[in-house]
Design a protein around this nucleic acid. Structure first.
Length: 746
DNA sequence: CTCGGTCCTTTTTTT
DNA sequence: AAGGACCGAG
């Protein structure tokens, strides 16, 4: 790949602070990977002295792959093969790596930090359950009045402003902050006892350690060449950490794009660039303004939107690429038609030889995927929804990880509480309360109490017995964890506690199957760590699982349409992009329309969405839709009006484009029956939704007996074309489309 | 005391 | 889909 003169300049300037202003698809990734190659191959810099920080795991692994290719070496599996390769990872993964290394080599007391090396990472739901418990049991307050979610927001805000729990007392200026202060203190105490960190702590604790001169010295000397991608999305602790690391050698290159800053709600502050300019007044500034991906039309369209932001630095993104189709604007009469037209367009293109995988469907919030999914299902189009962190949020996954976590770190009280009665062992809320009180009074970790459970006399004998049984299982697993790799450990665990029987009890075949598949999937992910030493594999697996998200599991080899939020799409590009639900109140979100800053961030999000498209961009909205249990008519999105009208072509809604839709929408109430709904839920739980059945309708007739996997045997009591009413002995009459429903004639 | 039903609500964006 | 509230059975 031949770099242009600007990119070449960025590549060659390595012993100097460097600000690369890079607009969408300006080949910044190629520039950065060639820059690493240049350092190592031309300048003889040793690979492990180079650190590159990216924003997502996906970006990091892509970068590792590219760099490995230019260096002619095998792509390392993780950031840990640091001795012959640059350190390339996300902010969080690199900081965890540093935290662990420091804790392995130094005494915690010497560092004046309570953190010990086997720490666990609490995700958002772990954090909320701790906060809920504190609010209810320690502060004796009503959770309704002081919602954990709101308290969590205040605490996170404080942490990112580097205000400790003790220092928060000075911030109190309202009754809610009074409660926040008390909760924050207890929460920090809880983390300390459990040897746990939340996401914010990963940054804050790293910063704390790097402020110790002798620690900082080690890392400044090791990582002499630093690069930070997506600098506009850094927050205060991240900025401080980078500043400290770079202070000595000043070989820091940051990549910045103010048009793509969309994480201010995670405390990202694009004004960090002002601090950067102050810290490095002599920094070389290079602008990469040529876009190598999208057509002229798409770029002009995106430019015409983003220039409405006052905070935006004026610039012109340009391209040599061809002008192609105009931006297609679909104004559908209602939500179902909107979704159907999109499905129809995809189907049509596919018949012309395109792949399903050439299409990307974007929306503002995850909940919006539903109607698009329905339309795709009706047309048998395979698709996959990428939810933020859905996979690891599922009960079966959280349960199994909970076991692994207490095996790894016996102090982890949140996980212990989660799994002590899973599967049910007759240890209920009352017993756990007794354990909690005992723990509070004697300041002992759970494990120690469980080990000597006979001392807890308040406990019912039955509960004590159950805990002993649990203790046996736990001990066996813990011993095994030293001898067998983590994927085998999970299999043993599932058998030892009869987890499958527990989780699938009372479920339909379909639902049970999906649970089992999820467990299988977890074992598959875990088996990637099989090459490691058993104990190490467990630690590594748990660490990376905490940071992994659904989008990291996107499989490039299968052919399916991808659906995701615009936020999630930031790292990718696609031939054809559909931006849906372009209505004021939805996009921009109703929460943002009164606040200039929030609105500008939404506009940047629009820019990000538009520039994901390479060749064709479809924008759609519905004049009327069913939303939040009501019919609403949202005005056209203001962002749509900002696009230069010459660039837009209104998509004609013809009979052809409606196709079968018009027939379906006339009987649309049928699509909303409960079994359709549960079928939808069941299907989305799976990785790739399999195309629906395509039954030959002609073989069915009135009074036929049919088999259904979920409801067993039915009898057709009414049949109009392919829409049937089917009687089921205990559930009354169900309406369904027998062409696509999972039914079989008996 | 514990469990397993039912019924209700839930959300903006995610490392 | 999952958590919370509530209730009746064992």
């Amino acid at each position: 790949m031949q770099l242009n003169p600007k990119q070449e300049e960025a590549k060659n300037k390595i012993e100097w602070p460097l600000l690369i202003i890079a607009w969408a698809w300006s080949w910044k990734t190629a520039t950065l990977s060639q820059r690493v190659n240049y350092m190592i191959k031309e300048k003889g810099i040793v690979p492990p002295s180079v650190m590159m920080v990216t924003f997502t795991n996906k970006a990091a692994s892509e970068m590792r792959e590219r760099v490995a290719k230019t260096l002619w070496v095998e792509t390392p599996r993780s950031i840990y093969s640091r001795w012959n390769f640059p350190l390339i990872g996300t902010f969080h993964s690199i900081w965890i790596f540093i935290l662990k290394e420091v804790l392995n080599n130094f005494d915690s007391e010497e560092l004046a930090i309570w953190l010990k090396k086997d720490f666990v990472i609490y995700d958002e739901s772990d954090k909320l359950s701790v906060l809920k418990w504190i609010i209810k049991n320690e502060l004796h307050l009503n959770e309704k009045e002081y919602p954990a979610r709101q308290i969590a927001f205040y605490i996170s805000n404080a942490k990112n402003a580097l205000i400790s729990a003790k220092a928060y007392e000075a911030e109190i200026d309202s009754s809610i902050k009074e409660v926040v202060f008390k909760t924050y203190l207890k929460y920090e105490e809880n983390l300390r006892q459990n040897n746990a960190l939340d996401f914010d702590d990963i940054l804050v604790k790293t910063l704390w350690l790097l402020r110790i001169p002798k620690i900082l010295d080690i890392y400044q000397e090791r990582y002499k060449y630093l690069m930070v991608d997506e600098y506009q999305d850094t927050n205060a602790p991240q900025y401080e950490i980078v500043k400290l690391l770079a202070a000595k050698y000043r070989n820091l290159a940051v990549v910045w794009d103010d048009s793509q800053s969309i994480y201010s709600w995670r405390w990202a502050d694009m004004r960090n660039i002002i601090n950067f300019r102050k810290d490095y007044t002599d920094a070389l500034i290079i602008k990469l303004e040529q876009n190598y991906r999208s057509t002229k039309t798409i770029i002009s369209g995106a430019n015409s939107v983003i220039k409405n932001n006052n905070s935006w630095i004026k610039k012109e993104l340009w391209t040599d690429n061809n002008t192609w189709d105009k931006i297609n604007y679909i104004e559908a009469p209602d939500d179902k038609t909107e979704a159907s037209i999109i499905a129809w367009i995809i189907r049509d293109w596919t018949e012309d030889g395109w792949q399903y995988a050439d299409n990307l469907l974007l929306y503002r919030t995850n909940a919006q995927s539903r109607q698009l999914e329905e339309a795709l299902m009706i047309k048998n189009i395979p698709y996959r929804v990428i939810w933020g962190q859905k996979f690891y949020d599922r009960k079966e996954i959280k349960d199994l990880l909970g076991y692994l976590r207490v095996i790894h770190n016996s102090n982890d009280a949140v996980s212990m509480k989660r799994i002590i009665n899973v599967p049910t062992r007759k240890i209920g809320a009352k017993s756990i309360e007794i354990l909690d009180n005992y723990k509070l009074n004697f300041e002992l970790p759970y494990l120690q109490i469980i080990e000597n459970i006979d001392e807890v006399e308040e406990l019912r004998p039955a509960a004590r017995l159950s805990i002993k049984v649990f203790w046996e299982i736990y001990n066996t697993l813990r011993e095994q964890s030293n001898k067998i790799v983590v994927s085998e450990l999970i299999s043993h665990l599932v058998k030892a506690v009869q987890y499958e029987e527990y989780i699938t009890d009372g479920l339909s075949t379909d639902e049970a199957q999906s649970k089992k598949e999820n467990i299988e999937e977890l074992i598959t992910v875990a088996s990637q760590y099989n090459w490691m030493d058993p104990r190490e594999s467990l630690a590594q697996f748990l660490e990376e699982v905490a940071l992994i998200t659904d989008m990291d599991t996107k499989d490039e080899r299968e052919d399916y349409v991808t659906l995701m939020t615009i936020h999630t799409s930031k790292w990718l590009e696609q031939t054809r992009v559909f931006l849906t639900w372009l209505e004021d109140g939805i996009f921009p979100s109703f929460r943002s329309v009164w606040d200039v800053n929030a609105l500008e961030e939404e506009r940047r999000l629009m820019y990000v969405g538009m520039t994901r498209a390479r060749e064709e961009l479809y924008i759609s909205r519905a004049k009327e839709r069913f939303h939040f249990w009501d019919y609403v008519r949202n005005p056209e999105s203001r962002f749509m009006k900002e696009i230069d009208t010459q660039l837009i072509e209104n998509y004609a809604i013809t009979e052809k484009s409606l196709g079968w839709t018009s027939i379906f929408s006339s009987v649309s109430s049928l699509w909303w029956t409960s079994d359709w709904f549960s079928f939808w839920w069941a299907s989305t739980a799976k990785k790739v939704v399999k195309p629906l059945a395509n039954n030959d309708v002609s073989i069915f007739s009135m009074w036929d007996k049919v088999a259904h996997p979920k409801f067993w045997n039915w009898i057709i009591t009414s049949l109009t074309w392919e829409l049937a009413e089917i009687a089921f002995s205990s559930n009354g009459i169900k309406k369904m489309n027998i062409r696509i429903a999972p039914v079989r004639k008996l």
